[in-house]
Design a protein around this nucleic acid. Structure first.
Lengths: 253, 253
DNA sequence: TCGTCTTTTCCGTATTATGGATATTATTCT
DNA sequence: AGAATAATATCCATAATACGGAAAAGACGA
């Protein structure tokens, strides 16, 4: 009885589902908790975990609880470098030409993950933003990414993640979000106007045709990041996103 | 005909082998290159990759080459945070009490990966060391980790990774390495005396009984990190590694 | 100490992944 | 440019592999 048309290797898919579940649960889960979140029978879950523990991608705590293993860190790092290396020179150009902090982020589950950043020469910013995650509806990169997805998927992702409002200006309803997405689709760039952090404004643009939805952004204090800045920034962002799209198409020489 | 007594799920193990191979190859490989490095038949490799691409852990470039996918970044981040969060307060204590940069690293394949760092208040150090990898034989944390492994494994790992000599003081032969490991086992701490980077000395100690071999270190300029410093540092390191060992044992509340 | 819940092992079954053979593309050579 | 070559992708019969119900072993709480 073929329930799914997918042609993937089931046990592999299930193993990664488990890893995702552990990650979603904060990095540490009991076997029963996993069983509650998947339709898989307990022995199956246990066998897959046993396998993952054996090869070091999951570690079992003395509690018998399961956590993500350290070998995953390396894989994540390489994946990160891979994409980051591609973007770094472009982000640097953005910072040189515009003088504000440039970021690159990808869609990752129902959030965005920042992959690379070149800080502005102006002020010292936070430790490192790389690896940080943000919500789709309250960040420039998030909205830019949503703008290239179909409405159905937008709804699903946002409902899944919820719509917290870190500032008074944060978008809080699906209607407002779709109105903003319509503007983004029309103009080709997203604005985060103090929606994520008070005092910080940001312009963002999706990489067109990227296999994994991703976006670039340029952000800084509202005092400097104004309409005049936008007029300078948008063409630069376009140039950079186009360059990444091209690099992805030609990747690997 | 059971060739291996292992009770793992083969397809899962194979899938992760492929991910490791891609990582080892620098993040991007052609199908044939993978085939050359595994005994697996091509169709099997292809099917596994297809599965991984389908769920986003591998992406296929327009070249048809395969690269690690962005979903791995998230998993790596969570795994990192998991271990890092545990260590952060302890590293902070080390820095407070000793005034130099504190690191935590784990064994990862045939190298060490730095998981967390608290920089010293003294001088500005490099961007961020987190995620960086170092060799086992030329770093304090690496040698500390080797000291808790059996000789056979030490030999295998070091032969696998090779013994580059970044500085004139780097250990370059297995004999020298084993002599140093003997001292480390006796005294309970490792020294990296400008073996990795000229001008930088470091004391390191393994976390006893850690499920995944890991170590802490405290490092700084040779001018400040001297014998007197060692006498202050070693007890502090012991305290911190014991605390981590205890935390691992009690992890999960 | 005993009872309950969680984790782990067992093992017959058939579903699932396997890989040889082959088709379909890219790439190189002349 | 076209043919030859190599790389990548798909088929499909086979059986080996993973599966999951059932029951044991172990942890936990009373």
């Amino acid at each position: 009885m073929p329930a799914k048309p997918a042609g993937g290797v089931q046990s592999v898919e299930r193993a990664f589902d488990l890893l995702e579940l552990i990650a979603r649960a904060g990095g540490e889960v009991a076997l029963t908790e996993l069983a509650a979140e998947t339709p898989l029978p307990l022995p199956t879950i246990h066998r897959l975990l046993r396998t993952l523990v054996g090869i070091g991608y999951v570690r079992q705590l003395p509690n018998r609880r399961y956590a993500l293993g350290p070998r995953l860190i390396r894989l994540g790092e390489v994946a990160n470098r891979q994409l980051g290396a591609l973007a770094m020179p472009l982000l640097k150009d953005l910072v040189t030409n515009l003088g504000e902090t440039a970021n690159m982020a990808v869609l990752d589950g129902d959030m965005v993950t920042y992959l690379a950043q070149v800080p502005s020469p102006h002020a010292m910013r936070m430790f490192t933003e790389v690896g940080r995650q943000a919500n789709l509806h309250d960040s420039g990169v998030g909205k830019a990414i949503l703008s290239v997805l179909d409405d159905e998927r937008v709804t699903r992702l946002v409902k899944q993640a919820g719509m917290p409002t870190p500032t008074a200006k944060s978008i809080s309803t699906l209607d407002d979000l779709f109105a903003d997405l319509a503007r983004i689709r029309k103009d080709g760039y997203a604005i985060d106007d103090e929606e994520q952090e008070t005092g910080v404004r940001c312009f963002a643009m999706a990489v067109p045709g990227a296999p994994t939805p991703m976006a670039l952004s340029i952000s800084g204090p509202v005092s400097r990041v104004d309409d005049a800045f936008r007029d300078r920034a948008v063409p630069e962002l376009r140039k950079a996103t186009d360059a990444i799209a091209a690099a992805l198409t030609l990747a690997g020489d």
